[in-house]
């Protein structure tokens, strides 16, 4: 491969990412410490008030009052994303293990069925849950048929949001978990039984440790997009249960406080980068342990 091609082949990719990603993120960082414009937008003047606003409100007499409003949103984001990740993990492990035991033909079909919903537009998938959980929706009707009280209010709850998030991202959990479970040599499980271990010993001492890389990868893949998710809180949370993604969105929409939106975006970005770094360090330790 010629030196020129080696260089020019990578130029478009680098140029695209620098122009549409790296530079813009630097600008976001800049805007987050800029001054809010009088009529939306911002002025290039150094001002940390956006970050201060995350923790405090300015009272009548200019004193700072601690206001947990935004800390609560950040906390809720972490909690819901973590919850959705955990539920996905608990669901994915048995399903992935079940798929790995099937014939190769059935495996292909089941994996295809796992990935298929992922191809369906995100908005359609969230909308479907709106029909099911909505007022006078499918779930309420079924509940009534079985003699339940005339209840409503599945929608606009944390449960609805987390259901939507799990539904949206679970293929990203199943695929890596499957990949690591599938690689487990059946002879290892046989060896575990041969050495007087029962089913649960095999699960605990053989399957789980060997599936760990997949579980970690899957957790990251689900947790990261959940942190920044927008549609589920907006449609299934009904705007009552704000998460960081929706908070950012509103700052660039109706609220028009760009510096504050940028500051929240930076917090989100830092959380994501920390998650990714945590994983890199854990993966590194795993490597050392096996060597």
């Amino acid at each position: 491969m010629s030196k020129a091609f080696r260089f020019w082949g990578l130029v478009p990719a680098w140029a695209l990412m620098i122009l549409t990603l790296i530079v813009p993120i630097l600008i976001v960082a800049g805007v987050s410490v800029a001054e809010r414009g009088a009529y939306g937008g911002f002025n290039w003047a150094f001002d940390l008030s956006s970050y201060r606003q995350i923790l405090y409100t300015v009272g009548w007499t200019d004193e700072l009052e601690f206001d947990p409003k935004y800390v609560l949103i950040i906390g809720r984001t972490l909690l819901f994303a973590g919850g959705a990740t955990l539920i996905s993990l608990l669901l994915a492990l048995p399903v992935a293990y079940y798929i790995s035991q099937q014939s190769s033909r059935l495996k292909t079909i089941l994996l295809y069925l796992v990935t298929l919903p992922f191809w369906v537009s995100m908005i359609v998938r969230v909308y479907a849950w709106l029909i099911i959980l909505g007022n006078d929706g499918l779930l309420e009707r079924i509940y009534r048929i079985f003699g339940g009280a005339d209840i409503s209010g599945f929608l606009f709850t944390p449960g609805a949001m987390i259901t939507g998030m799990v539904y949206s991202y679970i293929p990203l959990m199943i695929l890596p978990v499957y990949a690591s479970v599938e690689k487990i040599d059946p002879a290892l499980i046989e060896a575990s039984h041969d050495l007087y271990g029962g089913r649960w010993t095999a699960l605990k001492r053989v399957i789980l440790p060997l599936a760990a890389p997949g579980l970690t990868a899957g957790s990251i893949l689900v947790f990261v997009p959940c942190l920044g998710t927008v549609l589920e809180p907006m449609l299934l949370g009904g705007g009552k249960q704000l998460m960081m993604g929706t908070l950012i969105q509103t700052q660039f929409g109706g609220a028009r406080n760009w510096p504050f939106g940028a500051a929240i975006a930076m917090v989100l970005l830092i959380l994501v980068v920390l998650t990714l770094l945590l994983n890199a360090r854990r993966a590194g330790r795993q490597m050392e342990a096996t060597l």
Binding site: V23, P24, I248, A265, L268, L269
Partner: peptide, 21 residues
């Protein structure tokens, strides 16, 4: 990593970033 960056970072942040740009 740079080529895969859009996959690693939350889309809402990228969207905000290009909007400001």
């Amino acid at each position: 990593t740079v080529v895969n960056l859009p996959l690693l970072l939350p889309e809402i942040v990228l969207a905000v970033a290009v909007l400001i740009l």
